[in-house]
Design a protein around this nucleic acid. Structure first.
Lengths: 141, 141
DNA sequence: TTATGTGCAAAAAATTTGCAAGAAC
DNA sequence: GTTCTTGCAAATTTTTTGCACATAA
């Protein structure tokens, strides 16, 4: 049983064959080193179709929204039109996007998190969410 | 002559009646205190139409894209479907979005900028752009 | 004059939705 | 059995584009 399927169970999200397939595909959407794959809806639908070609894209959309609202996956809107998804992780992280290749590198930085909290507070706000995306080009050695 | 119209001149962007109107509307899209208005395309088209109702939304789209590519205005994609725009400023700033009211507060923080550079460098990248958005709810006193 | 811009309506692209049929619990 | 989910196709929403006409320099 995939990690995401387990999370559905523990959160009382009803499971169907379709959702199980989407859960598996999302759970498998990991990657090499610090860089993850963050598939978009179309890519997910393609992967899902390899397992069960009768699953419609509408179901993919509905299921991703459901998983996102349940905190099981996360949606990102990087600088392109479409949304990209990744399984939620225990530890919050931000993203660096390689402007030349489109690769996504994840990183964690405690100082940044603290600084953001401090800035929000100074402005009279309680931070409830944030988005930090760095866009960079690789330095050749 | 609006500030944006002046920038067009100095950058060799050809001016038309329509572009002058859009330039004026964007130049006027400022605001109170630290909070700016960041209108979306539809809102801009409405404001533009008050001055000249024959200007089409296609022209608004085309002109905003042109201004953006010339570095005259900036586009943001906050957590909604549509893009919002603001005139470029001398000093880079980031945004805090009030999750309850939708208000946008601008802020400048040198430490954050430095930290981002340092992180990119550590990952082997040269930072070419970034996006930092804080989402918060007002602390009542 | 010559390259560029504009309006219109149609096209794209991403996402959502109504509805009848099917599955979960 | 009742409530929730799905597939399909149609509808929405935001943005782009082809083309004939109009305008800037």
């Amino acid at each position: 049983m995939s990690i995401i399927e387990e999370k559905c169970k523990s959160r009382g999200v009803r499971l169907t064959d379709q959702r199980r397939v989407i859960a598996k595909v999302m759970s498998d959407s990991k990657s090499t080193f610090g860089s993850k794959d963050h598939p978009d809806v179309d890519e997910l639908h393609k992967r899902v179709s390899l397992i069960d070609k009768r699953i419609s894209i509408a179901t993919v959309y509905r299921t991703l929204k459901l998983f996102e609202e349940s905190g099981i996956i996360e949606r990102h809107d990087f600088k392109e039109g479409k949304s990209r998804y990744e399984p939620s992780t225990d530890q919050h992280h931000d993203h660096l996007i390689d402007v030349n290749t489109g690769d996504i590198i994840e990183f964690v930085d405690k100082d940044i998190e603290e600084l953001q909290n401090r800035i929000a507070k100074k402005l009279g706000y309680k931070l409830v969410d944030h988005k930090l995306e760095l866009y960079g080009s690789k330095i050749k050695k």
